[in-house]
Simulated assay, not measured.
Amino acid sequence: MEIRYLRLIKVIVKEGSITRAIDKLHLSQSALSYQLKEAKVQLGTPIFYRHNKKLILTPIGKKLYKAANNVLKEIDSTEPEIKKLISGETGMIQISTECNTSYHWLPPVLNKFKNEFPNVGCKLYLRLLTAL
């Protein structure tokens, strides 16, 4: 099931009518009807019953509506996090180096990095040199 179908189901139920759902989804009547038909074909069963001009969820539609609420909530909360990762606002960098007592420059560099990117974590892996 495509995410757009889940959004479609959720908005139709929330708005209570196709007319209001069309406005919310910025779709034409024919586009909404087509997507609803495609969702029905993909599932192999109706999602809504038509009663007069109202759409009423079938038992399968109720199950999908519940799933849509959960899935869309998760997607909506994840999108901003992904955008922050992509833009470099948040994340984690990992630095691996051999331990050397002449690394006096490293702490100031890490401090500057932390000041410029406060939401990006840093893991430092040091490998100790051993004498043979």
Rank of each mutant, 00 (worst) to 15 (best):
Gln29Pro: 01
Val11Gly: 02
Arg50Phe: 07
Thr58Gln: 06
Ser28Asn: 09
Lys10Leu: 13
Ala31Val: 05
Lys40Ala: 11
Gln29Ala: 12
Leu43Phe: 01
Val41Glu: 05
Ser17Ala: 07
Lys66Ser: 03
Arg20Thr: 09
Ile56Val: 12
Gly44Cys: 04
Arg20Glu: 09
Ser28Ala: 02
Lys14Val: 09
Leu32Gln: 00
Ile12Phe: 11
Leu36Lys: 04
Arg50Lys: 11
Ile18Thr: 14
Gln42Ile: 14
Gln35Asn: 15
Ala67Gly: 02
Leu27Phe: 12
Ile60Leu: 01
Gln29Met: 12
Asn52Pro: 02
Leu8Lys: 02
Ile22Trp: 05
Leu55Ser: 14
Lys10Trp: 02
Thr58Ile: 02
Thr58Leu: 07
Lys53Asp: 04
Ala39Arg: 04
Ser28Tyr: 08
Lys14Thr: 15
Ala31Gln: 11
Gly44Tyr: 05
Ser33Ala: 13
Arg50Leu: 08
Ala31Arg: 00
Val13Glu: 07
Val11Met: 09
Lys24Thr: 15
Val13Ala: 12
Ser28Leu: 06
Ala67Glu: 12
Tyr65Leu: 03
Gly44Met: 01
Lys62Phe: 05
Leu8Ile: 08
Pro59Leu: 12
Pro46Leu: 07
Lys10His: 09
Tyr34Cys: 10
Glu15Ala: 14
Pro46Asn: 04
Ile9Glu: 11
Ile18Arg: 03
Val13Leu: 14
Tyr5Val: 14
Glu38Val: 14
Ile9Val: 13
Gly44Lys: 05
Ser33Trp: 11
Gln29Phe: 09
Arg20Pro: 00
Gly16Pro: 07
Lys37Gln: 13
Val13His: 04
Lys10Asn: 11
Lys62Asp: 03
Tyr65Glu: 15
Gln35Ser: 14
Ile60Pro: 00
Asn52Gln: 07
Leu32Glu: 07
Leu57Ser: 04
Val11Ala: 01
Gln35Asp: 15
Leu64Pro: 01
His51Val: 10
Ile22Cys: 12
Val41Cys: 06
Ala39Thr: 10
Thr58Arg: 00
Ala39Gly: 07
Asp23Glu: 13
Glu38Arg: 03
Tyr5His: 14
Gly16Cys: 12
His51Asn: 08
Phe48Ser: 15
Tyr34Gly: 14
Ile22Phe: 14
His51Ser: 12
Lys54Cys: 06
Lys66Glu: 13
Lys14Pro: 05
Leu43Arg: 07
Leu27Ile: 10
Lys54Arg: 13
Phe48Val: 15
Ile9Leu: 00
Gly16Ser: 07
Ala31Asp: 08
Tyr49Glu: 05
Leu55Thr: 13
Ser17Asn: 06
Leu27Cys: 06
Leu32Pro: 13
Ser33Leu: 11
Ile9His: 05
Ile56Arg: 12
Ile22Thr: 04
Tyr5Gly: 15
Ala67Lys: 09
Lys62His: 03
Lys63Cys: 02
